[in-house]
Amino acid sequence: MKKLFITAAFVLGFMVNSSAQIVTPQASPKAVIEQKVGLTDVKVEYSRPSSKGRSVYGELVPFGRMWRTGANANTIISFSEDVMIGVKKLPAGHYALYTQPKADSWDVIFYADTNNWGLPEKYDDKKEVVRTTVKPEFLGRNVETFTIGINNLDNDYGFIEIAWEKTMIAVKFEVPTKAMALKSIETVMAGPSTNDLFAAAQYFYQSNADQSKALAWMNQAIAKFPNSADVPFYFLRQKSLIQAKMGDRKGAVETAKLSLAASEKANNADYVKMNKDSIQEWSKK
C-alpha cells in the first residue's frame, strides 16, 4: 500500500511539472505607446532590440535595404483620423512601418498589409500607401535599445521619432484638429452650454483664431449665470486673456480683478498669482 502511494505521488508530481511552462525574457521585448495628438489617437506597437555591442547601421541594418524597423512581427502604427505626411494623405487606419536606411537619407514607408513577420515574403508596391524621405540626425549620445516615440507635440502636428545607436529620424505628421474642433463647435453652437462656450472660446484663444468670436462666446457663457458672483474664476481669467490679446488692456485688468476676487474666495493660489501677475503686467503703460 505504501509503495502504491509513493508511485501515485510520483506520477502526480510528474504531471504537474510537465504542464509547467518555462518563462524567460524576450530578446526584443514588445512595447506599446499611445498618444493623443490634438484630437487624433496615435498608437504604435513594436518590438525593441538592443545593440549589445554590435554596430547597427551599415552592418546589423545594412544601408539601402528595406528594414522591418524593429524586430519580430510588424511594427504597426495606427491613426484614428486621416493625417498628412508632407503633401500626402494617409487615411485613418493601421499600417506596417517599414524603412530603408541610407547614410544620408531614409525612406519611411506606411504599408497597408500588417500581417507579416518582419518584411512581406512578396513585397507589393501597390500596398505602399505613403512613402516619404527624411534626413537622419546624429545624436551626441548612444541609444542602446531601439526606440520609437511620438514627440514634439502641437495641436496640429506631431513627430514620429525613431532612434537607435547614435541616429534618429523624425517624420512630421499633421492632424485635422482645426477641422474637427470647428465642426464640433458648429454642432453645439445651436444650443451650447456654458462649458461648450468656454471650451470654444479657449480653443480659439489658444489657436490664435478669431478673438472677437472667442470674446463673444465668453460673454455668452458668463451671461448664462443668473448671479455674477457665481461666475467661475477661470471663466473670468479666460475672458481677461482674450481681452489682453485683442489689445484691450484696460478691460483685461478689470476682468482680471474680478477673477482675482473670485479665486481668492475659492482659495486657489495658482489663479491668485496668475491674476496678480497679469494685472501688474497689463497696468504698465
Rank of each mutant, 00 (worst) to 15 (best):
T177E: 12
G86I: 00
A209T: 06
W282T: 05
K88V: 05
N74D: 15
K88C: 03
Q243N: 07
S50P: 01
G251I: 04
A262M: 06
E59F: 13
E161C: 08
L241I: 01
A200Y: 05
F173G: 03
V44E: 04
Q202W: 10
E59P: 01
V143Q: 14
D270K: 13
K172S: 07
Q21Y: 11
I148F: 11
S28R: 07
K89V: 11
D156S: 13
N152P: 00
I242Y: 09
S19G: 03
K135Q: 14
D41N: 12
S55L: 10
K102W: 11
V32P: 00
F233D: 06
E186H: 11
A209D: 15
G118A: 07
P232N: 14
A256K: 03
P62T: 09
K285H: 04
Q211N: 11
A266I: 02
R141T: 15
M218Q: 14
I279T: 07
A209G: 11
R54Y: 03
G70M: 05
I148H: 10
A261Q: 13
R141C: 03
A216F: 08
A8W: 02
A262K: 14
A199N: 15
M246H: 08
M180V: 11
Q35A: 01
G149K: 15
K284L: 07
P136Q: 06
D210V: 11
D104N: 14
Q26W: 04
S28T: 14
T177W: 01
T145G: 07
A256Y: 05
P101E: 04
Q35C: 00
I148G: 09
V83E: 02
K183T: 12
P25C: 06
R68W: 04
W117D: 02
D230I: 08
N208Q: 14
A20N: 11
Y271S: 05
K213Q: 15
A92E: 07
K135A: 14
K135D: 14
A269V: 12
S212E: 14
D210L: 03
I160F: 03
F198Y: 15
S228L: 06
K239A: 11
